[in-house]
């Protein structure tokens, strides 16, 4: 099939960017979207031009590296699919596509379609864990966990940290990402001791990173390649509300002694 691509080209973080048009005369429907871009890049290199920078690694939909907007939707039109798993049979001959990076203040563009998602790591660092040192454990079966809770925790933990939720949100909110971790750990007995602290700190960090707020539009849930649900956001709100009322401030400043 034949496709016309409009791709956002931006040399670096402090450079202006613009859409550049590329014609793809010969796209195989069995190619993945990234393989289609590989073909374009090989062609650009042969012509002495710079290839399009885009992030990717595992190319099997789990590492969360890849992701950009295709026609205004993160990861493109197929639900539950990362762009590396999106195949060209989802498009039709003669289609024109607009490809641009995820946009949010907290995701600055590094080059072309590549953005910096370090803000996500910092949200996790603020409390997205269970504070157990290596070796501090009891037998794995010592604490039974209700199957349903384990499944719900797994549903939330399936988040790959790609940033599609932020990209799709009209407010560039990271609520779904943050809530997924709060819900995952909050649903398990191991996560109870730090539940309040986790909610307070992670939400505070989310704001610190300049993400927007949640208006419950549900776009994130619909576009999440892993189907993480917005009921996790309600859970986060609940945990946060409770923590805001009962949480005792730390005596030592956050960040250790």
């Amino acid at each position: 099939m034949k496709l016309t691509l409009n791709i956002w080209r931006q040399k670096g973080p402090n450079h202006p960017g613009r859409m550049v048009k590329y014609e793809m005369p010969n796209v195989d429907e069995h190619m993945s979207f990234l393989e289609m871009l590989d073909v374009l890049n090989e062609d650009l290199i042969h012509k002495g031009e710079e290839p399009v920078t885009f992030e990717h690694d595992c190319r099997e939909g789990i590492c969360g590296c890849c992701g950009f907007m295709i026609n205004g939707l993160p990861h493109g039109p197929q639900r539950g699919t990362t762009v590396c798993q999106l195949h060209m049979r989802q498009f039709h001959d003669g289609e024109e596509l607009w490809i641009e990076p995820f946009r949010a203040k907290a995701f600055p563009v590094l080059k072309d379609l590549m953005v910096d998602r370090g803000s996500f790591d910092r949200i996790i660092a603020a409390g997205g864990y269970v504070s157990v040192n290596t070796g501090c454990f009891v037998d794995g079966n010592a604490i039974p966990i209700e199957k349903q809770n384990a499944e719900m925790a797994m549903d939330a933990a399936a988040c790959i940290g790609c940033g599609a939720c932020v990209a799709s949100c009209p407010n560039a909110s990271a609520s779904l990402f943050t809530a997924a971790k709060i819900a995952h750990l909050g649903l398990l007995p191991q996560g109870q001791a730090e539940r309040d602290r986790r909610a307070v700190r992670m939400v505070a960090q989310m704001m610190e990173e300049s993400f927007g707020y949640c208006t419950n539009t549900g776009e994130c849930e619909a576009l999440c390649p892993k189907g993480v649900k917005i009921e996790n956001i309600a859970r986060m709100n609940r945990d946060y509300l409770k923590a805001a009322i009962t949480y005792r401030e730390e005596s030592a400043p956050a960040g250790g002694s």
Partner: peptide, 21 residues
């Protein structure tokens, strides 16, 4: 919250679609 929203995405998309909202 609107001010926060404007701050959170200073550069708008060239093309943006909505799926379910």
């Amino acid at each position: 919250l609107t001010l926060l929203k404007l701050d959170a995405r200073p550069q708008a998309y060239v093309k943006k679609s909505a799926l379910v909202s």
